[in-house]
Amino acid sequence: MRRNEFDAIGTHWCIDLPATLDAQRVEFVMKRIRDRIEVFDKTYSRFRSDSMVTVMSRAAGRYELPSDAAPMLALYRKLYDLTAGSVTPLIGQALSDAGYDASYSLKTKPMMAPKPWDDVMRVSGSVVDLAEPVLLDVGAAGKGYLIDIVSDLIESEGIRSYCVDAGGDIRYRNETAEALRVGLEHPMNTSQVIGVATLVNRSICGSAGNRRAWGTFNHILDPQSLTSPKHILTVWVVADSTMVADGLTTALMFADPNALQSVFDFEYAIVHEDFSLTRSEGFPGEFFQS
């Protein structure tokens, strides 16, 4: 495998392509990937002043997003309904006020709960009507979705075996169905793992509050209580779609796994605050137990 590493959208990327590709081809594919990530970032990043979501945070009105917005907004709506509003793209302002803002001030200002979706936003495909200025945040599913977009681009180049890893969220495809051993990081000790997932032609996403954390907050915010959930230390989801896997890691902080499994096809593992483990029967991997 040829490993390509770079930083983008606030995390570290590691893209493995087949060693059989010549250097020039790799350079060409990587250029396309970097350009595509830039387009995504310029649309959805609330951390840059020139992005579409920053523009949307300044004025009400009708916004035509790129066509790639439609599947992500549809997933967000499903998760919003399944979690009684706990997973919501309207969380942007509250996250920003908690301190996770464009300049990473990490200083908490007075916070307000996001308004109900139907009060402020109408979505039709990739067209969004805002009744008032809203700071959207696609942090729950956006990275997973971008991993899928990058992977589709790689596949459009005729490449069938690859690994796209964005900060530990991973989509892996292998023509010979060789398994990828993914260590499941200990939520309190980044030099340890508590198990190993065995990934074959699927995606894995994890969510934990240990890195993107300041004060009593981390990057996941309960819109009702305006606090970061502490009852779960870490969650992993394995699914065919990285976007779905990513979105479900946040949804599992708020909703019953069985309710989510009746809608989505996925496997999960949850480490609770006492280090007890709940996992779906089919979660591909092993856990180290006391």
Binding site: D165, V182, G183, H186, T190, F275, Q289, S290
Partner: peptide, 26 residues
């Protein structure tokens, strides 16, 4: 209940590690 325990990454054969997303230098 099942409780999980950690093992040092160096002692486990792995290709990748997944947890909370790595953060940027900023």
């Amino acid at each position: 209940k099942t409780f999980v325990v950690g093992k040092n990454i160096a002692d486990v054969q792995l290709s990748k590690v997944s947890g909370s997303s790595l953060t940027s230098q900023a």
